[in-house]
Amino acid sequence: MHAESIMSQSHLQAGSWMKDVANSGWYDYIGAILACTLKAVTEIVTFKCNVMIHCSDGWDRTAQVSSLAMLCMDPYYRTQAGFLKLVQKEWCSFGHRFRTRLALGDAPTTEYSPVIVQWLECVFQLLQQFPDAFEFTDDALLRLAEEVFTNRYGTFFQDNELERSHVVAGTLSLWSALLEDSQTWQNAGYKAEQMRIFPSVCQATYGIWEAYWFRFHARGARLKPAPLPPSERTAPSPSSLAPSPEVTEDPFAPDFLEGPSDHAEPSLFSPAELIPKAKAAPPPPPLFGDDDEDVFAKHTKRGDKSLTEEAT
């Protein structure tokens, strides 16, 4: 990883970090992912077409593009709670192979690949391009990028939900920890508007995720903001902690993209985690429902299995 290679850089030497990054093609991949996202968003929003997103296996680039497209089209997923639900739904529940890709508890294999970190940097690029469209800051991305490797929470254990279900009962949830400390990653300039965003894919608009790549360097220490004293901290935004609104209209009507939808999404959190602490305007409603019956799900005598398990 480039964050580790920069540890050896000295202020007395030029080093080769920029060359190493260029040789890795990291930002070429970032551009390819954003370009694919832009194509999907354009097809759905502009041309009112259906889009199927599927890579060779369905647990790497598929999750990257689908979740980025939802961030661009649905303002609900740009709220604090909505973003956590998006990660849970598109990455954890759909079976991204955290254990294999990040070598969690195992020696790295040829299948090691920081796919989730790559996606988090794509989200970082969106935050840079549309700073007031997100209720969360890049502090949330940095926390996720760190915790996927620590094994402190059961949220990212194993390679799919079936394997995770055997161990998650004795672990803590990262989502609960983040919601309890939501004021530390809340964007003060957030504007809750019903808008779609179209990412720029030009590398001239990219910024370096310095808080992540330089976190092992002396420069990284200067990039970390000092924590606010308790007297200056604000309460968590009720708009991000409130549960999704009830269904009031058909989300699959022909013109459902012409205006905001009230399609409800099943909660991934306990009621105690979603109780707002003050009255405020409701969050932007989600456009994408996750409670539709999967007509392609396979069933065997061993019980129901997810598509991810069937694929593996």
Rank of each mutant, 00 (worst) to 15 (best):
L257P: 01
V167D: 05
P236A: 06
L172E: 06
S24M: 12
P238R: 04
G207F: 07
Q125S: 03
A218S: 10
I44V: 14
P285E: 08
K277A: 12
F269A: 05
E135W: 04
R101Y: 07
A40F: 03
G82I: 01
F124M: 03
Q183F: 13
C72G: 02
D294Q: 13
D139I: 12
E180P: 01
F288N: 01
L68M: 09
E246F: 08
H2T: 11
L223H: 05
N187V: 03
P227R: 06
K48Y: 07
H166Y: 11
F94R: 12
L120E: 00
D106F: 14
L68D: 00
Q186H: 11
L144E: 01
L257R: 04
A280D: 12
S173H: 07
H166K: 15
D106N: 11
A145Y: 00
M70I: 09
G15R: 01
I6R: 00
Y212P: 00
W17K: 01
F216I: 05
P282D: 09
P114H: 09
Y112E: 12
D139A: 14
A169T: 11
T62D: 02
A3H: 08
V247K: 08
A272S: 13
S67G: 04
E246C: 12
C122D: 01
S270V: 13
T171M: 14
R99Y: 05
Y153G: 01
L71Y: 03
Q183R: 06
C122S: 09
L84N: 02
H96R: 02
G220L: 09
H263V: 15
M18L: 14
I30P: 00
R215C: 02
G154C: 12
T46D: 07
R219Q: 12
F157W: 08
D132R: 15
A235N: 04
D250H: 04
V201H: 00
L172R: 14
Y190H: 15
A204T: 08
G15C: 09
E258I: 05
R222T: 10
T234H: 06
E163L: 14
Q183Y: 10
G220Y: 03
R233D: 06
V167T: 13
V87Y: 02
A264V: 07
E180C: 07
T37M: 05
D304R: 13
T312D: 09
K224I: 15
P254V: 12
S93I: 08
L162E: 15
R215M: 05
P230G: 03
T150Q: 06
R97T: 05
L38H: 03
W91A: 00
L86K: 00
F296S: 13
V45W: 06
A103K: 04
T62G: 08
Q125R: 02
S231W: 09
L178Y: 03
K224S: 11
E309Q: 15
D57K: 14
S5K: 06
R78V: 00
A280F: 09
P266A: 10
A253K: 14
I53R: 06
G170M: 12
S237W: 01
F252L: 13
F269Y: 08
V65C: 00
H217Q: 09
